[in-house]
Structure formats: structure tokens, C-alpha cells
């Protein structure tokens, strides 16, 4: 059981996370799944939103169907111009995840692209502007698992 979260709340969160109903009244559908009234689900959802437990609701996409490839990029960010570099990286909408990690390669981000040349152009730009020599470009070959259910499983 997740820390400090009540069982009913966890069930609602699980339902919102696993399959948000694409219906005019989604909270009615969730209520029916869990055997609780729509107005109760709605009340709890508003609380989750207020407490920022939910960051947003959106589609999980099949990127291959959209002819997109992905890669994981790592680089050694110099202390000088660190903030500018992060700002530059984060400004790209094709970069959705960016993390500071405990390693000499300290910046790790994911990038989606259509063509390699488009990806290489961006990486060369980063190298040039921020005077970075080494970049790890770890292209995705296969996805083995993507399941973020750990927050309610344990």
C-alpha cells in the first residue's frame, strides 16, 4: 500500500492511470468500475489535482506507428554555461525527459526524431555552442518494458 494514501483513493488513481475513459462523463465510468458514485470520484480527483498528485492527463502514444525513433543522449555538462545548456536542451519539444545523474556523464535526456540527420544536426549544434566533445548517443533498439504501476503495487 502506498504511503499515507487511502485504499479508495489508490483505486481511483489506479483507474485514472491505467485507462482514463474517453467519454463525456469519465468519472461516472470510473465510479461504475469501482462501485462508487460519480460525485465522489470527481471530488477526490479535484483533491488529487490540488495536491499535484496528478501532473496531467494525456495520451500514451505508439511512436513507431508515428514513424518516430528515439534515443537516449548523455553528455558531460561543463560547469560554465550549465544553466544555458539546460535551457537550450529543454527548449526542444522533441526532448521530453531530461535528468541530472550522478556520473561524469551528468546530463541524460531522451530525444525523438524522424531522420538521423535531424538528430545529428541537433547534437552537433549542442557540441558547437557549448564546446562539448563527448556525447553518448544510445539509440533505442527495442523496448522490453514500460509499466509505471510501481506506485500502487508496493
Amino acid at each position: 500500500m502506498a504511503k499515507g494514501i487511502e485504499k479508495k483513493d489508490l483505486e481511483i488513481l489506479k483507474s485514472l492511470h491505467n485507462d482514463f475513459p474517453v467519454l463525456e462523463r469519465p468519472y461516472k465510468e470510473i465510479g461504475e468500475r469501482l462501485n462508487i458514485p460519480e460525485r465522489y470520484v470527481f471530488k477526490r480527483v479535484k483533491t488529487f489535482k490540488r495536491k499535484n498528485l496528478i501532473r496531467g492527463i494525456g495520451p500514451n502514444l505508439n511512436l513507431e506507428r508515428l514513424c518516430l525513433k528515439t534515443t537516449l543522449i548523455a553528455l558531460k555538462a561543463p560547469k560554465k554555461k550549465f544553466k544555458e545548456l539546460i535551457k537550450f536542451i529543454n527548449s526542444y519539444r522533441s526532448i521530453t525527459h531530461n535528468y541530472l545523474r550522478d556520473n561524469e556523464f551528468n546530463i541524460w535526456f531522451t530525444l525523438s526524431y524522424k531522420e538521423r540527420k535531424e538528430k545529428n544536426a541537433l547534437l552537433n549544434k549542442i557540441k558547437k555552442i557549448f564546446n562539448i566533445q563527448e556525447i553518448l548517443d544510445l539509440e533505442t533498439i527495442d523496448r522490453i518494458k514500460l509499466k509505471t504501476n510501481f506506485f500502487y503495487e508496493t
Partner: peptide, 25 residues
């Protein structure tokens, strides 16, 4: 249209993005 995109397999599911740190992770 969203249901159609789901049927086409472009949208796998609609999902709430959870802040896992709020669950102690």
C-alpha cells in the same frame, strides 16, 4: 476521434501522469 486514434493503435491509452515522488518514491 480519440477513440478512433485508440483503435488505430496510435494512442495506446489515455493516462493520468502521476507524480511518483508524492508516493514516497
Amino acid at each position: 476521434k480519440i477513440q478512433k486514434l485508440k483503435k488505430m493503435g496510435i494512442i495506446k491509452k489515455i493516462s493520468a501522469r502521476i507524480d511518483y515522488s508524492k508516493f514516497g518514491y
